[in-house]
Simulated scan of single mutants.
Amino acid sequence: MPSPAIDDYLKTIYHHTEWQSVLITPSQLASELGLAPSSVTEMVQKLAAQGLVSHRPYGPITLTAAGQTRAAAIIRRHRLIETWLVGEFGYAWDEVHDEAEVLEHAISDRLLEGIDQRLGRPRFDPHGDAIPDASGHTQREPFVLLAAAAPGHVGRVLRVSDRDPEVLRAVEAAGVTVGAEVRVVDAATLRIADAKVQLPADAVGAVWLSA
């Protein structure tokens, strides 16, 4: 049955390993959701009983095939809505997350399909995150986190995390956009064309480049 609470858990687990490979632990999940560890432990047990996650006591949490399918479906809704709000209503990329959080549980499958069709079946949202297709599949090229990129690395900006709206605004103010070709000078400095761009310290862990 539809449940925003369950969907939030599954989305958070899905997000955690999209751009890195370390699995999420119950304590990390509690921190991400802003909930008490005891509440998270209880919900994870329920999700495991429903066949949506796999988890052993004190171990990491992984999505089962069913959990992955359900998480991808809600992620698809969220990211299509974000893309729609930016493209059709002029929202800035730092404004869409909270709106999408509400609308993802409210719109019908028919409307979602209409949005997808109108937007031309986009593969990525405004932040560079992959939008799962109707089957739950995504396509993503090899990537490197800016903080881990070597000086001299040349690549395109693939993704800017939408976790912190202030970081999004700072990155945009610096002239860094998804798709921009950059050269890494150091972790906080990029060269775009002939210009040097200085990023705030928080941005080095929020920007991903093509590898």
Rank of each mutant, 00 (worst) to 15 (best):
M1H: 15
P4G: 12
A5D: 09
I6F: 13
D7E: 13
D7N: 10
Y9T: 11
Y9V: 08
K11I: 09
T12F: 15
I13Y: 07
Y14K: 10
H16V: 13
V22M: 12
V22R: 15
L23H: 12
P26Q: 04
P26K: 06
L29P: 08
L29T: 06
S31I: 06
E32W: 15
E32G: 10
L33P: 02
L33Q: 04
G34K: 03
A36I: 09
A36L: 11
V40M: 08
T41V: 07
T41E: 12
E42G: 13
L47Y: 03
L47Q: 03
A48Y: 08
A49H: 13
Q50H: 11
Q50G: 15
G51K: 01
L52Y: 09
S54Q: 14
H55M: 09
P57C: 04
P57M: 08
G59A: 14
I61W: 14
I61H: 11
T62P: 02
L63I: 11
L63P: 11
T64P: 15
A66W: 14
T69I: 08
A71N: 01
R76E: 07
H78K: 11
R79W: 09
R79L: 06
L80E: 01
I81G: 04
E82L: 02
E82N: 03
W84T: 11
W84D: 09
L85H: 06
F89S: 05
F89A: 05
Y91T: 05
Y91P: 05
A92G: 09
D94L: 00
D94A: 03
V96I: 02
V96A: 02
D98E: 10
D98M: 03
D98V: 07
A100W: 00
E101K: 10
E101A: 08
E104K: 09
A106H: 13
A106F: 09
S108Q: 05
D109G: 10
D109E: 14
L111K: 15
G114E: 05
I115T: 02
Q117E: 10
R118T: 06
L119W: 07
R123Q: 10
P126S: 08
H127P: 01
G128L: 01
A130Y: 04
I131N: 01
P132K: 05
D133R: 02
D133A: 04
G136P: 03
G136T: 03
H137R: 14
E141C: 08
P142R: 11
P142E: 09
L146V: 00
L146F: 03
A147V: 02
A147R: 11
A150T: 13
P151V: 07
H153T: 13
V154P: 04
V154G: 13
G155M: 05
R156K: 14
R156A: 13
V157T: 03
L158N: 02
R159L: 06
S161A: 10
S161C: 11
D162V: 01
R163E: 12
R163F: 15
D164M: 01
V167S: 00
L168Q: 00
R169Y: 06
V171M: 01
E172T: 12
A173F: 06
A173R: 07
V176I: 05
T177W: 00
R183I: 04
V184D: 01
V184G: 06
V185L: 14
V185P: 00
D186W: 07
D186H: 15
A187T: 06
A188N: 10
T189R: 00
L190P: 00
D194S: 12
K196S: 10
Q198Y: 12
L199E: 00
L199P: 00
D202E: 15
A203N: 02
V204H: 00
V207E: 00
L209Y: 01
L209N: 01
A211N: 08
